[in-house]
Design a protein around this nucleic acid. Structure first.
Length: 581
DNA sequence: GCCGTTTTCGGCCCGACTGTTTTCAGTCG
C-alpha cells in the first residue's frame, strides 16, 4: 500500500493530535482526548517505526496505545484513514483545529466560531474578521474580539523557524542515518545556526566528509525521513523532510573538512570579517581553505585554520558577531562555559509534583553526572495541575530527602521549591515555610499576559523577597511558541543585581530563558546567573548543555555562574545566607 | 481511551486568572 510507505511516527502523531483537538472541539469526554494526546506524544518519541511494530504485532507495546488506537494505526497503514476520523471530520472540518493556535481560543470558542460564523480555519477566520462578523459571536465582548484579532495577527507562519531543541536532535539523527547508509563517514557535524546554538533556525545544515564525496549526495534521497532533494551545487543539496523541515547538506573530502565546516557554520557577518582579517595577512579565505600565491591550503581541523592565521580559536557559540575576530586576534576570546564546570543543578522536579522520577532516582542520576548537589524544587501548592506542594507536604518531603542524603553522602540533595508568584504579586507559601528550605526558586507561571506594569511589579516583589534566591525562566517565553510576558527586563535585571537575586538560564530547550541577549545584559549589570535543567526526568538533567551554550553566547565568565560553585560556596552565596550573616 | 501489587471498573488534570453572560464559563499552565 502506498499509504504505508510514507507514514512516519511523526505523521501518525500529527494525525492523533489533530484527532484529539477535533474531539475536544466536538465535546467528547476530556479523558478520551487526553488519551489520544498521550498516544501521539508517545508515538513521536518512539525510536522504532510504528510500521515495524505493526508488522510484529507489537503496537500495543507503545505506552498509551491500547487496542483501539492500535487498530486505528493499522487502518491508517492499510487504508490511509480510519472510521472515527472520517466521522469526526464530517462533523468538524480539520481546519477548525488550527484555531486553537490562537491565544484565548480554546475548544469552546473554536466550536462557536465554526457553528455561528461558519469559520472553517485560519483564513476563513481572517475573512470573518475583515467583514466585522466577530461581534456576532454570542458571549464575545469587544475585548475578547480584540484579543482574537491580535492573536490571529501574532501567529507565525507554520514551521517558519525550527527551534534548536528540535533542530539539534534532528541534525544528529540525520547524520546517524547517513553514516549507516554510507557505511561510515570520515567526519560529520551539524553546521549553521544549529552549531552556533541559535535558539531557532530556518534550516538544519550539516557537513560531512567522505573519501568519495559525490557518492554521499545521492544517499540523501534514500533516507526515510526525506521527502524531496534538490541539488544546489556540485557538492551540496537542499532537502525537505516529511515534517516540512528544510535541510542543507554539504559534502567534502576529509582533508578540507575543517575549512568547509567553518565556512558553513557562519555566521555570515563573522566569516566576512574573518575573511577581511585573513586578507590583511595575504590570504584569501574561501569555503575550502586559505589561498596564498595561487596555492590552496586545506584544513581537516578548524583549529588548524585559526593557527595558520595566528589567532586564537573561536568556538561556534561565539561566532555570532564579527567583533570576536578582533578579540581572537588579541588573544581575548572568553573561556567557553561547559557542563563540566557545573557542580550541581538548582532547579529540578520529582514525582512529588509533576516530575516523572522519584527524588532518589533524580539524586542518583545527578550523582552519576558527577554533580556534588541537586536542588529538588517541586512546584508550590497553587499550581494544581502540577500537584503543587503545601507546607505540610513539603515537611513530609523533607523526611524523604534526608533519608536519601543519608544513603548518598557525600552527594547532597537540597530541598527547595519552585514558588508560584501569584497574580497579585504575593508568594504562594508563608515566610516560615520558605525560611525552612535550602533554596527557593520563584516563577511567574500564571497571568503572563497581564499588562507590563502589573507583570513587572509581580516579578519585582519576588526578587525583593529575602527568601527568593533564584528567579526561574524570567520571561516565560517558549521558543517558537509564545513570546513571554511583557516584563520590563531593565527593571528586573537592575533589581536582581541590587538584591543579589540569581537570574536563571533555564536549559529546557523549549524555554532557553533567559535568552542569550538578556543573559548578556544581566551579566553586564553585574547579576549572578544559574544554569539549570528544570528537569522533570532523569534524562532532563542532561539538558544543561543547552543552557551552558546560551551562557557562552552571552559571553559569561564561569565566576558569574552560581552553580559552578562548590556546595559550600554555593550555599554561602545565596541571598538568604548573606542576609542572615 | 488507557491502565491495573487497590486489574475488568473507576480513576485519570487541578486551580488561577480573566472577561463578561454579574455568578461563572473558558483558557491556560
Amino acid at each position: 500500500m502506498s499509504h504505508a510507505e510514507i507514514l512516519t511516527n511523526t505523521e501518525l502523531a500529527h494525525r492523533f493530535r489533530r484527532l484529539a483537538d477535533l474531539l475536544e472541539i466536538r465535546g467528547d469526554p476530556v479523558f478520551k482526548v487526553i488519551a489520544y494526546r498521550r498516544a501521539a506524544d508517545s508515538l513521536a518519541q518512539q525510536p522504532e517505526s510504528a510500521r515495524a511494530l505493526k508488522e510484529r504485532g507489537e503496537l500495543g507495546a507503545i505506552p498509551g496505545v491500547g487496542k483501539a488506537i492500535a487498530q486505528k494505526i493499522e487502518d491508517l497503514f492499510d487504508t490511509g484513514t480510519f472510521k472515527l476520523w472520517e466521522e469526526v471530520v464530517r462533523e468538524i472540518p480539520p481546519g477548525v483545529a488550527d484555531l486553537l493556535q490562537i491565544p484565548d481560543v480554546g475548544p469552546k470558542r473554536a466550536r462557536q466560531l465554526y457553528a455561528e460564523l461558519g469559520v472553517k480555519g485560519l483564513d476563513s477566520l481572517r475573512e470573518a474578521v475583515e467583514q466585522g462578523r466577530l461581534s456576532e459571536v454570542s458571549g464575545l465582548g469587544s475585548r475578547g474580539a480584540q484579543r482574537i484579532v491580535e492573536g490571529l495577527r501574532s501567529l507565525q507562519p507554520p514551521s517558519a523557524l525550527i527551534p534548536l531543541g528540535t533542530a539539534h536532535p534532528l541534525a544528529l539523527s540525520l547524520l546517524a542515518e547517513l553514516e549507516v547508509q554510507a557505511g561510515g563517514l570520515a567526519h560529520s557535524s551539524p553546521a549553521g545556526g544549529v552549531r552556533r546554538r541559535c535558539e531557532a533556525v530556518s534550516d538544519v545544515a550539516f557537513v560531512v566528509a567522505h573519501s568519495r564525496p559525490d557518492s554521499i549526495l545521492s544517499l540523501l534521497s534514500t533516507l526515510p525521513t526525506v521527502a524531496e532533494v534538490e541539488p544546489t551545487g556540485e557538492r551540496a543539496a537542499a532537502a525537505r523532510l516529511h515534517t516540512g523541515a528544510r535541510v542543507t547538506l554539504t559534502v567534502c573530502e576529509p582533508r578540507s573538512f575543517g575549512a568547509v565546516l567553518h565556512h558553513w557554520t557562519g555566521s555570515r557577518e563573522y566569516i566576512t570579517r574573518l575573511a577581511a582579517f585573513a586578507s590583511e595577512r595575504g590570504y584569501e579565505l574561501t569555503e575550502f581553505g586559505l589561498t596564498s600565491g595561487g596555492e590552496l591550503e586545506t584544513f581537516e581541523d578548524e583549529r588548524a585554520l585559526y593557527e595558520r592565521l595566528g589567532m586564537q580559536y573561536v568556538p561556534p557559540t561565539m561566532r555570532e558577531d564579527a567583533d570576536m575576530v578582533d578579540a581572537a586576534a588579541a588573544g581575548e576570546v572568553p573561556v567557553e562555559i561547559e557542563v563540566s564546570m557545573l557542580h550541581g543543578d538548582l532547579h529540578s522536579h520529582s514525582t512529588w509534583s509533576d516530575g516523572q522520577h522519584t527524588i532518589r532516582e533524580m539524586a542518583e542520576a545527578a550523582r552519576a553526572r558527577g554533580y556534588e548537589y541537586l536542588c529538588v524544587t517541586d512546584h508550590s501548592q497553587s499550581l494544581g495541575v502540577a500537584n503543587g506542594l503545601s507546607p505540610e507536604r513539603l515537611a513530609a518531603q523533607r523526611v524523604e530527602i534526608e533519608a536519601v542524603n543519608q544513603e548518598l553522602a557525600p552527594f547532597r540533595l537540597l530541598q527547595g521549591v519552585e514558588l508560584e508568584v501569584r497574580g497579585d504579586g504575593s508568594l504562594d507559601l508563608p515566610d516560615e515555610t520558605l525560611a525552612a528550605l535550602d533554596i527557593v526558586v520563584a516563577s511567574v507561571h500564571t497571568g503572563l499576559r497581564q499588562e507590563r506594569d502589573r507583570l513587572t511589579s509581580r516579578a519585582l516583589s519576588a526578587i525583593r523577597s529575602p527568601y527568593v534566591d533564584v528567579l526561574a525562566h524570567p520571561t516565560g517565553r517558549i521558543v517558537g511558541g509564545r513570546a513571554g510576558g511583557d516584563f520590563d527586563m531593565d527593571a528586573l535585571i537592575a533589581e536582581a543585581a541590587r538584591t543579589g537575586t540569581i537570574l536563571e538560564i533555564n536549559s529546557d530547550p523549549a524555554r532557553l530563558d533567559l535568552r542569550d541577549t538578556h543573559a548578556h545584559q544581566a551579566l553586564v549589570a553585574g547579576c549572578t546567573l544559574s544554569i539549570d535543567s528544570d528537569a522533570h526526568t532523569t534524562d532532563g538533567l542532561g539538558n544543561v548543555w543547552y543552557g551552558a551554550d546560551v551562557a557562552s553566547r552571552a559571553r559569561a565568565t564561569v565566576g558569574a555562574i552560581h552553580n559552578a560553585l562548590t556546595l559550600t560556596e554555593m550555599l554561602a552565596g545565596l541571598k538568604r545566607h548573606r542576609l542572615r550573616n
